[in-house]
Design a binder for these strands. Sequence first.
DNA 1: TGCAGTTGGTTTCAAATGTAACTATAAAGA
DNA 2: TCTTTATAGTTACATTTGAAACCAACTGCA
Lengths: 154, 154
Amino acid sequence: MSTPRKATPPGIKHAPLELEHFLPYRLSILSNTVSQGIADDYQQRYDLSMTEWRVMAVLARFEGLSAREVADRTAMDKVAVSRALARLVEAGRVSRHMADNDKRRSVLDLTEDGWAIHDVVAPMARAREQALLDKLDEDERQWLVRILDKLQER
Amino acid sequence: MSTPRKATPPGIKHAPLELEHFLPYRLSILSNTVSQGIADDYQQRYDLSMTEWRVMAVLARFEGLSAREVADRTAMDKVAVSRALARLVEAGRVSRHMADNDKRRSVLDLTEDGWAIHDVVAPMARAREQALLDKLDEDERQWLVRILDKLQER
DNA sequence: TGCAGTTGGTTTCAAATGTAACTATAAAGA
DNA sequence: TCTTTATAGTTACATTTGAAACCAACTGCA
């Protein structure tokens, strides 16, 4: 154990990644920081998880979705959605009733309580986004949108 | 339950977030897609988790770090690092010995096996990054770096 | 010295998450 | 119609993750 078993051949350099310039890493750090920041605004206050908030946000935007459609729109998997919905319905923040044309399908909506929370949290989320965008000038904001569009293509 | 308890005042619109244009959401989707893509390259093949790979990547770049320093550099918490290291050491991919000036502190390095894995995975990660960057033209790439720098300020 | 506070790191326990199996309904084909 | 296959959603189990408690070693200071 104390003697090196084989010296690294002199010519080989290993070329480690420079994480601080590595795009996937930078994206990950940035994304986590931002999402966590927003979550800090509502988590304790409303006992609301990030996934629950995402479900609420999409139901605010599109009323009457099924669980499956929520999953599609949030890029969450259906089990996660099912669990988030169980808590939200239990807490009286989302109403669920059966679609009359298809008894498997649920029809989901925010309740009044759900809307009340939404109407507090959504502006806070927007404010966080704005704080981020404020670091950029107008040119940069436009490039950012264009760049994100291209990176997400396909 | 069947009678609405209070009608939503007619003037109030609720202003839901448009997730598809909401920056934090877009960043999250993009980041997860990219990181998961890279992870697909090594997870099954080397039985290596994403956190383990991150630890290896940072040890490739900076030899002899302590666990604490790894945590700082990866923005992971120390419990996650501790667990990743336990597996990596067990698997013979990282060596750990005690710092002689401070017996709490560990001195961590990739082993030969660790380097061998690194030297396969790092180029794959770089290739993924390149595939992403290939979607942009030179202008856009430069703006992206600049924008990320500004977004991460402070 | 010797005590109080801090730091590096691991362990423990609870909560979150993912995978696969399962139930119920619906749709499609013979 | 009867049988097969697909879909919506939940449940069960195993794994991962995070928070807090914990232990050991170090530091500062009386």
